[in-house]
Design a protein around this nucleic acid. Structure first.
Length: 754
DNA sequence: AAAAAAT
């Protein structure tokens, strides 16, 4: 229970109260008797209140040490037993629910029945829920759930526990569990757990022996009163515990979509057609809508204005590149002369925007150059060496001097080319130079901000930037959602120099008055083009508006194009643009293959591809499919896990760590993992669903073939998607080989044995 | 569709 409180620390206790009271009361007769009487009369002096405060304090303490979760939890642990709550726990275990468990468990085994749960009263809600599903707006609630799951999991999972054994068997390597326990501090701490084994053994007997004690409970009396289970069920709807169960379910709720999946898949074929219409958004499309029949459509295709348009785009693009030398000499500030072109494009279109005119740096240009020569201080250079960056990569050599000179910079470097250090190191150097000593005081305001599109990326950036910052006595903190605010806020209170985070929580803290960006003199947008996409642009603009006027701005991305023109025009002054020359297909270490498959063969082929030794990253378009695939692979005996936005943050972090550490070899992810995430030695990327955007393709593919290593990208597409795929690969300037594949084909086997 | 805040 204390567990529940912990997570609640940063949030509204509201959510937890119901469960909380529900739990304790039933578990401990004492609390049960107290609550009715004392609550009404004395909220102030009652002993219960003290306990609560203690619990809060505990929670606060534990949350205050996120960095050192374990120690904090450890403390909790020690307290728990002392609290005596444990003594009561047993009674908790005796809870009616448990009695039900057996029954519950019995139902569970037939997980497939779950759907049958739908028949239950509680489930009835689902339908409505289901209808809400479509709208993601409701999801927010979901975000919570996951959180609930963290604590509860242990709880709700209890029934599932029966499953555990099997689960464990599947994941022998789950050394994580410890980590898992950490997440579930309170839970794991529970005596019951240790007892579990014993418990289970007792169970059979227990039911009979405990029953008497059950009889003692007031509530129980009611239970016993229930003549038939059937009636019991009727009551279930009203059962307070249920809600709790439901909370656990959420994870299951995710499953619901699964049911839809089949339908979804079925729709797919149709999709191709529906997607086409999306093309209709294009000017040329207007013609299309006129076309009554598809057949006629095709006939017209040759004449399609769009096509040529594509070609036209590309052609100039190359010219642009070839013009580079002359252009770059023309001046930096006019890199966005063709703004007039913009209106022609809509945001959704996957069109190659003109490349930003850039100063190209080649690898040969930086031979022999050192970080020190670029202007970085001794401590930073030393730290970079420790991080494995002995000498600068081209993109770093290109941008560091300009950043140090205080210029606004746009940097484009292929995935895995070292962009984080390219902005991180000079950023720290600059802050240090401006640090007159008065900036070390407590509560000083942050002076640099690094924005990223996903939490994992923010975390990863911090892992690189923090040591660099610390080497010169500066502090960083992460500000992103999905975790309690407390630690972040207290860090801000102590005073930090560099903030690394995602837009949502940063805005949230600003609105709460807990974060002041007025002293931010350097702002970095990583994956800048993505940050300019619909849904991100406005929050980013609001955040930039809060930073110091005239502050330095750095925009980085592997696919930096004129999609960032809005921000550039609005916030940057005379930016210098850098890229690394010679980064094209020819220099790539990635092999691209497209497998044309029958829809019904898709899952079998994915399974065969993923059943291999090396690390494999699989991308799916939706969270639900990612989850389904991960389950499918696990069922097939392949150690796999998933990464997507339906998981709570601790799971996301843990699952990613599973792949990083090699405890699983397969990660199935949504595009949350497409950009920036670095995991060593991923040698195969499978796109279970083809991406819609060429940039997405490039970023997903960029998860492999890093640091000069080789990698393979396999994209599965249905036959009717071939043409779209051609276009996309064309825009990405990638040459891929096509093959039609069936399960067991040589091509599939060969890929799996890579 | 996904991501990004939380309640």
């Amino acid at each position: 229970m204390a567990q529940n409180k912990k997570p609640a620390a940063g949030r509204a206790p509201k959510n937890f109260d119901p469960n909380y009271t529900g739990g304790p009361r039933k578990g401990g007769p004492k609390t049960g008797s107290k609550s009715p009487g004392h609550r009404g009369f004395r909220a102030d002096e009652g002993a219960p209140k003290k306990q609560r405060w203690n619990a809060d304090e505990r929670a606060a303490r534990s949350t205050s040490r996120p960095a050192g979760d374990r120690p904090a939890y450890g403390n909790d642990r020690s307290e728990r037993p002392a609290s005596g709550g444990r003594t009561e726990r047993p009674s908790y275990n005796d809870r009616a629910p448990r009695t039900d468990r057996p029954a519950y468990n019995n139902d569970r085994p037939a997980r497939g029945e779950r759907p049958s749960y739908g028949d239950r009263p509680a489930r009835t809600d689902r339908p409505s829920y289901g209808s809400d599903r479509p709208s993601y707006g409701d999801r927010p609630a979901r975000g919570e759930r996951p959180a609930y799951n963290n604590d509860r999991p242990s709880y709700g999972d209890r029934a599932p526990r029966t499953d555990r054994p099997a689960y464990n068997n599947d994941r022998p390597a789950r050394g994580e569990r410890p980590a898992y326990n950490n997440d579930r501090p309170s839970y794991g701490d529970r005596a019951p757990r240790t007892d579990r084994p014993a418990y289970n053994n007792d169970r059979p007997a227990r039911t009979s022996s405990d029953r008497p004690s059950y009889g003692d409970r007031p509530a129980r009396t009611e239970r016993s009163a229930r003549p038939s289970y059937g009636s019991d069920r009727g009551d279930r709807g009203a059962r307070t515990e249920r809600p709790a169960y439901n909370n656990d379910r959420p994870s299951y709720g995710d499953r619901a979509p699964r049911t839809d999946r089949p339908a979804y898949n079925n729709d797919r074929p149709a999709r191709t057609s529906s997607d086409r219409p999306s093309y209709g958004d294009r000017p040329a499309r207007t013609e299309r809508s006129d076309r009554p029949s598809y057949g006629s459509d095709r006939g017209d295709r040759g004449a399609r204005t769009e096509r040529p348009a594509y070609n036209n785009d590309r052609a100039p693009r190359r010219e642009f590149t070839s013009d580079r030398p002359s252009m770059s000499s023309s001046g930096d500030s006019k890199f966005y002369p063709s703004r007039d072109d913009k209106p022609r494009f809509t945001a959704e279109e996957d069109v190659v925007l003109e490349r930003l005119e850039a100063q190209a740096t080649t690898a040969s240009d930086v031979v022999g150059v050192t970080f020190a020569e670029l202007g970085l201080g001794g401590n930073i250079v030393r730290e970079l060496g420790l991080l494995g960056a002995a000498s600068p990569f081209p993109i770093q050599a290109a941008t560091i001097p300009d950043v140090l000179a205080g210029r606004d910079v746009l940097g484009r470097g292929r995935t895995g080319s070292g962009k984080t250090i390219a902005f991180g190191a000079p950023l720290v150097e600059k802050l240090m130079e401006n640090d007159g000593g008065k900036n070390r005081q407590q509560g000083r305001k942050p002076r640099a901000l690094i924005l990223a599109p996903t939490r994992e990326l923010a975390l990863q950036i911090d892992r690189t930037v923090q040591p660099i910052a610390r080497s010169v006595g500066l502090f960083t903190t992460q500000i992103y959602g999905g975790v309690p605010q407390y630690h972040q806020v207290s860090a801000l209170h102590r005073g930090v120099d560099i903030i690394i985070g995602t837009p949502g929580r940063i805005e949230d803290l600003i609105d709460q008055g807990k974060l002041d960006l007025s002293q931010i003199s350097i702002t970095v947008l990583d994956e800048a083009d993505h940050m300019c996409d619909l849904g991100f642009l406005e929050p980013v603009q609001r955040i930039l508006d809060r930073t110091k006027k005239g502050g330095q701005k750095l925009l980085f991305s592997a696919t930096l194009d004129k999609g960032v023109a809005t921000l550039v025009n609005q916030y940057l002054t005379n930016p210098s643009v850098h890229e690394v020359a010679g980064e094209d297909q020819a220099s790539s270490t990635i092999d691209h293959q497209v497998l044309v498959v029958e829809h019904r063969d898709k899952s079998a082929i994915i399974e065969q591809l993923a059943d291999r030794k090396g690390k494999t990253l699989i991308f799916s378009r939706t969270r639900a499919y990612a989850e389904q695939l991960a389950d499918q692979l696990e069922d097939a005996g392949i150690r796999a896990t998933s990464l997507h936005g339906d998981l709570n943050q601790s799971r996301r972090t843990r699952n990613l760590a599973l792949l990083t550490s090699g405890r699983v070899n397969v990660l199935v992810a949504t595009d949350v993992a497409a950009r920036g995430i670095h995991v060593d030695d991923i040698d195969l990327v499978i796109q279970a669903d083809a991406p819609d955007e060429y940039k997405t393709y490039l970023h997903r593919a960029g998860r492999t073939g890093r640091a000069g290593k080789t990698g393979t990208v396999v994209t599965l597409i249905p036959k009717q998607r071939q043409r779209r795929m051609d276009e996309l690969l064309g825009r990405a300037e990638i040459d891929a080989s096509y093959a039609t594949a069936r399960p067991g084909d040589a091509a599939v086997v060969a890929l799996a044995s890579l």
